[in-house]
Design a protein around this nucleic acid. Structure first.
Lengths: 372, 372
DNA sequence: CTGTTAGCGCATTCAG
DNA sequence: CTGAATGCGCTAACAG
C-alpha cells in the first residue's frame, strides 16, 4: 500500500482496492455509471459508503481541466433585481453538482475585466454575465474561455455565444408610450446614474416622446450631471446609493425645476417609491396631479397606495433560463437559440391611470418576444 | 523538455526555465515575495509578463490542500438584509486573492447540512455561516473543517469558533420597550414565519410586554399558524414570500382581529411598509391611531411618509468584520474575540412617536455592546 | 466493459 | 535565500 504524506481522507484508490477494482473504474462509476457493470457498481458503492469517501473536487478539476464552478457576474448584489436573477440561477441548479461563484462588478468595466481574468484561471464549467457592455478585453477572454458563456438581462445581435433577456429600449418605449396615452405631457425621466441598460431605457423614453412631440432633454433628471456609474461602496459608507431617499430628492428637484411636470418615469422602482413618498409629504395627488411609474416591478409596487405602475421584468426566470441553458450545453447539447427574448410586461396601475378607473385591479400589457 | 498532454497555457516551469530559476522559486516569488531576492523577483516578474502566465488555482489547491474559496452560507439572497451582509463580505475582500462562494440555505437546516457537506470537500479557505441554529451534524462538520469558521448575524455563548453579530432578543426587547414608553398598550407582533433569529426578536417583544403587563399571545399575528420556515421557492413561483403585500394582509388581519390595536412591531421592514400602505388605504392615522415599527432599517424606512421607526442593524459591517476576521486568521493571527457584539440602534421616527413632535429628524438610541 | 500508464500544475518536504 | 525530487487525488488516453 502506498504511503501517504498525510493521513487525510480516503482517496479513490482506497476505494478501488477495497472494492478490488481499478481506480479508474471507481472514477467512472462516479461520473458515468452507465459505463460500469451494475455488479461492480454495487461493490464500489458499498466501498464508498464504508469508507465514507468523498471525491476531492480540486484534484478532479486539475485532472480534467474543468471545474464544477459556474461563475456569475452581476453589477450589484444589493439591488433586488439582480438578487432575484441570482436566485433564479440558484434555483436552476436543482440537483446538479455544479457550484456557483458570484462576482460583483459594481457597474465598473475595469473591475469586470479583472474579475473575468481571475475567473478564467479556474477553468469554470460555465460563465453567466450580465449585459452586453463588456470591454473588448473582457469579451476576448470570454470568447476564449472554452466553456459555455451566457449573457443575461439584455439583448443584442451579436452575443458572445448566447444571450437571454429583453430589450430595455423597448421596455422604456412602451412604458413611456403608456404615459403618453394616458394624456401626460410633461413626463420626466428620473435616474440616479446611467448604466448601459439604463441608457437603453432612456433611449426608449426619448423615442416615445419624440414620436409624441413632447420630448424635452431638460426633463431628464439625474443625480449629478454626468455620472455613469454609481460611486464606489466606500464613498457610500456601506449604504446603497440607489435609495428611496434619493428618489424623494430627485422628485423634489424635478418638481422644483419643472412646476408643470405631470408624470415621472423612474429608472428604478425604489426611486419611484421615493417619488411617491415625496408626493405624499407634499400632499400632491397621484395620479391626478402627477403620475408615477417605475421599472422592475418589485413586490411593493403593487402594494403601494396608490399601487404604482411599473415594467415587470422576469428576473427570476432570466436567471433560471440561463442556468438551464448552461446545463443543457454542459450535457452536450448545442445552443438552441443564440438570442432569447423573454419579454416584459407593462403593469398599468393606479399611479399612472388618471383617465378613469382601472377596471381590473391591474391591467397588463405583455411585450413578450414578438418574433416567436 | 517534458511533453504535454495538451498545449494549454504556460505553466510555472515554463516561467522558471525562461527566468533561469527553479520552479519553486517562481512559486515563492508569487506567494511569499519577501523570501526571494529582489533581483530574482524582477527576472521572474518579467518572465511572467512575457509569457502571460497565470497560476492554475486548482493545481494550487490540490498541492496545498487549501483553496482560496471562502464559503458563505446565508438563508436567503433576496432579502436585502443578507445581500447587504454579503456585500460587506465582498467589500472586506479588497485586494486579497480570496474568492467567495455564496450558498443559500433557504432557512432549511437540511439543505444547510447538505451544502456544508459539499463545501468541506473543497477544502475552503474559510467558512462564514449565518446564525447559530445549525444541526448537530452541520456543527460537527464545521468544527472539523480545519479552517476558520465565523458565525454571523447573531450572538451565543458557545460559537463554533467565533461569532460576530448582535442580540435579536435585546433588539426585540428595546424596540418594544420604546413602543411601551410611547404609551402604546395593544402592540401586535407581525411576522411571516419564525426563523431562529426572528424567535429571538419575538422573545424580546414578549419580555418587554410582560414587564409592562400588557402581553397577550393573541397579538402575535403570523402567516399560517405554525410556519417556521418559508415555503420553498417553487411554491412561490419565483416570487418572494416575504413581501409588502403580505405585510398589508397581516395588518388587515391584525386590525380585524384586534380593533383596539394601537401599534404593530413588524418582524421585517418590508412587512412594516406593507402595514403602512394598509393604513394609508384605510385612511388610518399613523402614528396617531396606530404606531408602526419595523426591523432592519432598510433605506426606505426613513424616506417613508411618515418616516417609519425601525431597528437598525449593521448588516454591511457585520459582513465586513467577518471577512476581516477571516483574513486576520488566514494571516496566522489568533482569534481576537470569540464573541463580538456589534450592537444595533433603535431608530425612533414619526411612525411610533405620538407623544409629541420629534425634535430631531430622528432620535437614535444605540444599543451597542454594553460589556466592552 | 475494465485496467494500465502517465501525467494535470503546483507546493511540500528536505537539502544546500 | 535557492533548488531537486516527490506526490497531492484524480482522470485522459490508450490498450485489452
Amino acid at each position: 500500500m502506498a504511503k501517504r504524506r498525510s493521513s487525510s481522507r480516503p482517496t479513490i484508490s482506497d476505494v478501488a482496492s477495497l472494492a478490488g477494482v481499478g481506480a479508474i473504474t471507481v472514477s467512472r462509476a462516479l461520473r458515468e455509471p452507465h459505463k460500469v457493470s451494475s455488479t461492480l457498481r454495487k461493490v464500489i458503492d458499498d466501498a464508498i459508503k464504508k469508507l465514507n469517501y468523498v471525491p476531492d473536487l480540486n484534484a478532479r478539476a486539475l485532472a480534467s481541466k474543468r471545474s464544477d464552478v459556474v461563475a456569475v457576474l452581476v453589477p450589484s448584489l444589493t439591488q433586488s433585481v439582480f438578487s432575484d436573477v441570482v436566485r433564479g440561477i440558484y434555483d436552476g441548479l436543482a440537483e446538479s453538482p455544479l457550484r456557483i461563484e458570484v462576482a460583483n462588478t459594481g457597474y465598473n468595466p475595469e473591475i469586470e475585466e479583472h474579475l473575468v481574468s481571475r475567473i478564467v484561471r479556474h477553468q469554470p464549467a460555465a460563465i453567466i454575465v450580465s449585459g452586453t457592455d463588456q470591454s473588448a478585453a473582457t469579451r476576448q477572454m470570454l470568447e476564449n474561455a472554452g466553456c459555455p458563456v451566457v449573457q443575461i438581462m439584455d439583448l443584442c445581435d451579436n452575443p458572445i455565444q448566447q444571450i437571454i433577456g429583453f430589450s430595455h429600449e423597448r421596455a422604456g418605449y412602451e412604458m413611456t408610450r403608456h404615459l403618453v396615452l394616458q394624456g401626460y405631457k410633461r413626463i420626466a425621466f428620473l435616474t440616479a446614474w446611467l448604466s448601459d441598460r439604463s441608457s437603453g431605457r432612456l433611449n426608449g423614453y426619448k423615442r416615445a416622446l419624440q414620436e409624441a412631440g413632447t420630448y424635452d432633454p431638460a426633463l431628464v433628471v439625474q443625480r449629478g450631471s454626468t455620472s455613469t456609474t454609481p460611486p464606489p461602496i466606500a464613498e457610500q459608507g456601506g449604504k446603497s446609493f440607489l435609495s428611496a431617499q434619493m428618489g424623494k430628492e430627485l422628485m423634489f428637484e424635478a418638481m422644483e425645476r419643472h412646476p408643470d411636470l405631470d408624470a415621472v418615469f423612474c429608472n428604478n422602482d425604489v426611486l419611484a417609491l421615493g417619488a411617491l413618498f415625496a408626493c405624499q409629504s407634499l400632499n400632491i395627488d397621484v395620479p391626478g396631479k402627477v403620475g408615477i411609474a417605475g421599472f422592475n416591478d418589485l413586490d411593493y409596487m403593487e402594494a403601494a397606495h396608490p399601487p404604482l405602475s411599473s415594467v415587470r421584468i422576469h428576473r427570476w426566470r432570466c436567471g433560471y433560463e440561463a442556468m438551464t441553458a448552461v446545463r443543457h450545453r454542459l450535457d452536450g447539447a448545442e445552443i438552441a437559440e443564440a438570442v432569447v427574448d423573454i419579454g416584459f410586461d407593462i403593469m398599468e396601475r393606479e399611479s399612472t391611470v388618471r383617465s378613469g378607473i382601472v377596471t381590473q385591479s391591474e391591467a397588463t400589457m405583455s411585450m413578450a418576444a414578438s418574433d416567436r
